Simulated scan of single mutants.
Amino acid sequence: MRRVEHVMGFPVSLRIDDPDVPGSAADAVFGWLREADERFSPFKPGSEVSRYGRGELARQELSADLAEVLDLCAHYRTATGGAFDAWPPGRSFDPCAIVKGWSVQRAAGLLTAAGARRFCLNAGGDVVTSGGPWRVGVRHPEHADRLCAVVEVTDGAVATSARYERGDHIVDGRTGRPATGLLSLTVVAPTLTVADAVATAAFTLGADGVGWAADQDGCEVFAVDSDRRVLRTAGFPKAPGERAAAA
């Protein structure tokens, strides 16, 4: 089964290699992602996130889901000394860096509950897999038609934070200015909740983020810094025969 939809502002592709999984499983995945977009987008004035950001909802009035997202935001804010901040200086509350990976991982859980054992769910380049192995390409930060690496993942997730799609959109919460020091940083982790959050949080730390991400439980890291040096942890999973391209 293969299906692609545009949700949450980016293409989401789903491939399920289990022939007995019903089409309703894919319906549930995309239905949940559309729901998450409506509830947690800071760009929709009526969303729960927007209402909370404007002070219309107290913490005790929030859904359990948003409370969980807030706890994750607070965790990474503390862990990075304020570099990662869903409440950046001079800007409204924006938990997108947490919501994307968290919501897609929740969608993967729906697939597992429906009996899917071998699948790949790709949300705008961030990927969660089951079964496998699956090969996931890491895009070159300066050349859209080239890869820096190919990762082989069986049960896990891959997420990249970079400047090539949206420019300097990742802000260092300590200064309010765009994060510098890295061109891209990719994290492989057991879940996309962790991979996506750690990749973004590490990017806010600049060059120091590579070591910080490597110290997070279960995380392996591949990065290209502003001097175009390739940095990778020893356990970063390579596909057989893969060689990193020079940055």
Score class of each variant (00 low, 15 high):
Pro89Phe: 02
Phe40Pro: 05
Leu121Asn: 11
Arg243Cys: 10
Ser226His: 13
Val198Phe: 08
Tyr52Trp: 14
Asp27Val: 04
His140Ala: 08
Gly9His: 06
Phe222Gln: 01
Gly9Val: 09
Asp27Tyr: 04
Glu152Met: 10
Glu220Asn: 09
Cys96Phe: 05
Val12Pro: 01
Gly176Thr: 07
His75Glu: 15
Ala195Gln: 12
Gly124Ala: 13
Arg51Gly: 03
Lys44Thr: 11
Gly125Pro: 09
Val221Lys: 05
Val194Trp: 02
Leu147Gln: 08
His143Pro: 00
Asp172Tyr: 04
Gly211Arg: 10
Trp212Ile: 13
Gly109Trp: 08
Val151Cys: 14
Val21Ala: 11
Gly211Ala: 10
Val198Trp: 07
Gly31Glu: 09
Asp208Tyr: 00
Gly156Lys: 12
Ala207Gly: 01
Ala36Pro: 06
Phe222His: 14
Val29His: 05
Arg2Ala: 13
Phe119Tyr: 15
Phe222Trp: 15
Ala108Phe: 10
Asp172Trp: 02
Val150Arg: 13
Pro178Met: 10
Gly211Glu: 12
Ser103Trp: 02
Asp126Cys: 11
Glu152Arg: 13
Val7Ser: 02
Ala223Gly: 04
Arg91Met: 14
Ser24Asp: 13
Thr154Cys: 14
Val99Lys: 07
Glu68Tyr: 06
Ser13Arg: 14
Val127Met: 03
Leu205Gly: 05
Arg91Ile: 02
Ala79Lys: 11
Leu205Val: 03
Asp27Ser: 08
Ala86His: 01
Ala213Ile: 01
Ala159Asp: 08
Ala28Met: 11
Asp65Cys: 05
Gly206Phe: 07
Val138Asp: 02
His169Ile: 08
Thr160Cys: 09
Arg243Trp: 00
Ser130Ile: 01
Thr80Met: 11
Ala245Thr: 11
His169Met: 12
Ala157Arg: 08
Met1Phe: 12
Asp208Arg: 14
Glu5Ile: 01
Gly55Asn: 01
Thr200His: 11
Ala86Lys: 00
Val230Tyr: 00
Val188Arg: 02
Arg34Asp: 12
Val69Thr: 10
Leu57Gly: 01
Leu185His: 04
Ser226Met: 00
Arg229Asp: 12
Asp215Glu: 15
Pro190Gln: 08
Val151Tyr: 04
Arg135Leu: 14
Val128Met: 08
Ser50Lys: 00
Cys120Pro: 00
Cys96Ala: 14
Pro240Val: 06
Val136Ala: 08
Asp94Arg: 06
Val104Arg: 06
Ala244Asn: 02
Val49Gly: 01
Thr80Pro: 06
Val188Ala: 12
Leu183Asp: 11
Ala149Lys: 03
Gly31Gln: 10
Pro95Gly: 10
Gly23Thr: 02
Val153Gly: 06
Thr80Glu: 05
Leu147Asp: 01
Val127Trp: 07
Pro133Tyr: 10
Trp32His: 15
Leu192Asn: 04
Pro22Ala: 13
Gly124Thr: 13
Asp208Glu: 15
Thr180Leu: 13
Val194Arg: 14
Ala25Arg: 08
Glu165Leu: 14
Arg59Met: 08
Leu192Ala: 07
Pro11Val: 09
Leu14Tyr: 03
Val21Phe: 04
His143Ile: 01
Ser41His: 09
Cys219Thr: 00
Phe119Thr: 03
Pro11His: 13
Gly9Ile: 06
Ala245Cys: 09
Thr175Val: 10
Glu38Gly: 14
Glu5Thr: 00
Gly176Asp: 13
